[in-house]
């Protein structure tokens, strides 16, 4: 439908698809490049769902040939996708009265948007970036404040930014911003790079609160057959009968205590 660039190498693509009707936050689609030298579909998380328009928003980073091809898609072009895949964030775990803290880091920020829109309890969002290119900042702010009274004070306590270079918000990572702003989560949801997810897991274990982490790995099939995208699990996985779960079909979201990352 349309595509814009949000920051250097970060693209914002809206596609019209029937899959929008069933897509839930934290799920992903596999997008196929047209260039036959790049065979495998690219797993891209769902940033936002517009059920009325029947559209999905995919915000992704150009990481190689496949995503570079996607970045050239224009209104009217078509692209082949497989989906929706994965299980998404368990929004039902955030009970009314709880304070949910949503953490997104880098290209893990986009799925946090649809998650924020899907949670009805009180929520606080922290987005972490490398530098001042804080893509989706306004969208996240809006989603964080949607259910809040219109006071600036209330709005000021719903959304924070951390940047590695300190140009915006807290200098450092999302966990730094959680500490600096004295956020007190009852439940955590996170998507981002592995070091960040490890920090979230540690924090959740120290505080004794549940945390749901969205993981990523190089994938081939996306449907649980190739066993390429596994993560280590604490217990023996029910399907594989070893300490490996498939990120594509058993995840991509896991309870932090279940995975050994």
């Amino acid at each position: 439908m349309r595509q814009t660039s949000l920051a250097e190498g970060i693209y914002d693509l809206w596609i019209r698809t029937d899959l929008a009707a069933e897509a839930r936050c934290g799920q992903f689609v596999a997008v196929y490049p047209k260039d036959k030298s790049t065979l495998l579909p690219r797993p891209i998380s769902i940033c936002e769902t517009d059920r009325q328009e029947g559209a999905l928003r995919l915000v992704y980073r150009v990481a190689g040939k496949g995503t570079a091809e996607f970045s050239r898609l224009k209104a009217g072009d078509s692209v082949q996708i497989l989906g929706v895949l994965g299980n998404g964030f368990p929004v039902e775990k955030a009970k009314p009265g709880m304070n949910a803290v949503l953490l997104g880091g880098g290209i893990g920020v986009p799925p946090i948007l649809e998650l924020a829109k899907s949670l009805s309890c009180r929520k606080q969002i922290v987005a972490g970036y490398r530098d001042g290119n804080c893509f989706l900042r306004e969208d996240l702010q809006r989603a964080a404040c949607a259910d809040l009274p219109g006071t600036e004070a209330a709005k000021g306590s719903a959304f924070w930014i951390a940047t590695e270079d300190g140009s915006v918000g807290t200098r450092g990572n999302v966990m730094g911003a959680v500490a600096q702003n004295d956020l007190r989560p009852d439940i955590l949801y996170a998507c981002g790079p592995l070091p960040m997810l490890r920090a979230v897991k540690r924090y959740a274990e120290e505080k004794g609160i549940p945390a749901y982490l969205s993981l990523e790995e190089r994938m081939a099939c996306g449907v649980g057959a190739c066993l390429g995208c596994v993560c280590r699990t604490v217990a023996v996985d029910a399907h594989s009968h070893v300490h490996h779960a498939r990120i594509c079909t058993d995840g991509p979201v896991f309870e932090a205590r279940e995975v050994d990352i």
Partner: peptide, 30 residues
């Protein structure tokens, strides 16, 4: 049951892919 190899297990290459799953499988009983 075989646990298979560590990740990354998949790499795309020109017109193909490399895999190093390491024969992860749940074993004959399952």
């Amino acid at each position: 049951p075989w646990p298979g190899n560590p990740t990354p297990r998949i790499a795309e290459v020109y017109g193909g892919m490399l895999n190093a799953i390491g024969l992860q499988n749940p074993g004959i009983d399952v």
